[in-house]
Every structure is written in C-alpha cells, then in structure tokens.
C-alpha cells in the first residue's frame, strides 16, 4: 500500500507541464465549427425544411405585414429583438451560446411567414431549435418583453403586436424546458 502511494506521489511530482502550444480542442475531441464564408452562419445538423416548422398558420392579407413595415421592417424587428436579448443580462448567456447570425435570419423569416408577408421559413421547428437550452418561463417572458420593445420602437400598433405574439405563444410548450 505504502509502495503504491509513494509511486503515485512520485509520478505526480515527475509529471511534466503540457507544452504551451497544446491544442486542447484536439486533445479533448472538441469539434470547431467553421462559419459559412457567405452567410456567416454556423452549420446545424440536417433537418427537413418546411413552413410547418414555424409552428403556426400564417395570417392572410397584407394589412398586418404593413403594420410591421413590410419584409424589411419585420427583419429589422427580428434583428433588434436578438440584439436587445444579447444585451439583456437576464438571458444574454443563452443567446451568446448560440448562433446569432442564423437566429436573426430564421427569426425574421418566421415572423415574416407568420405575418403573411410572403417569406418561406427555412429554420428548424421550435422544439429542435430550443433543445437543451434549458429555457425557463422567466427567460421566455424576458424575450417577449424584448420583442415588445423592438416592435414598439418600430411603431407597430399594440393590437398588431399581440397578433404576432398570438402566433408564437402556443409554441411555449416546445420552448420551455424547465
């Protein structure tokens, strides 16, 4: 017994510090994802693209989309929501750990599709997109507040804001994990 421990202690003392240039990602088998040269997005696992992934049926007609400033207005609101959330200490960590370039695009597509502004939603379904993020109801409330700020800044009438939220609210069961 004493011999074993002495040997172990000796081994510990004799251990060499790893070289400065050690590639720890390689040592631990961490895959480094490269951003796409054109879109700047990180790759995601393959999935079936479908508008059904947006989680709800879109509104008909162009009136509601006009309240949001058309396609460009909707894209700006989505990007602003993401920016606000990245800067929001309540939920910044969730956003920082994910691909914001991709989120701005897919969130914009989702809003645009749901509001009947004529986009295709190419993102993942709500359950897959939020898998293992550990989102709580408080996190979701914070995101809703940021979306409301973005919509208010863009001058979207409150009733129209709620109409967009009504398309998003049913997905809460797929988003809230704990």
């Amino acid at each position: 017994m004493l011999l074993t421990t002495t040997a172990a202690a000796a081994l510990m003392l004799l251990q060499q510090a790893p070289a400065e240039s050690t590639d720890w990602d390689a040592e631990f088998g961490v895959e480094v994802k490269e951003r796409d040269a054109v879109t700047g997005e990180l790759p995601v696992d393959p999935y079936t693209q479908s508008n059904a992934n947006a989680g709800a049926k879109p509104y008909d007609g162009a009136v509601l989309a006009a309240d949001f400033g058309g396609r460009e207005g909707i894209a700006r609101i989505a990007a602003r929501t993401v920016d606000l959330s990245e800067a929001d200490p309540r939920i910044a960590d969730i956003f920082a750990a994910n691909d914001m370039v991709r989120l701005k695009r897919t969130l914009g597509e989702q809003f645009c599709y749901l509001l009947g502004a004529g986009c295709e939603y190419t993102g993942r379904d709500m359950k897959t997109a939020h898998a293992e993020m550990g989102v709580t109801k408080a996190d979701l409330n914070a995101l809703v507040e940021n979306l409301q700020i973005a919509m208010r800044e863009a001058g979207v009438p409150f009733a129209a804001q709620n109409r967009l939220l009504s398309k998003l609210a049913p997905a809460s069961k797929d988003i809230i994990e704990r």
Partner: peptide
Amino acid sequence: MFASCLLAVCQSVA
C-alpha cells in the same frame, strides 16, 4: 489512506 497521502503530497508541494 490513499487520499490522505495525496493531500500530504500536495501540502509538501505547497
């Protein structure tokens, strides 16, 4: 036994 010995080693390093 093993753990306490390790601790002792650590202390000597310290």
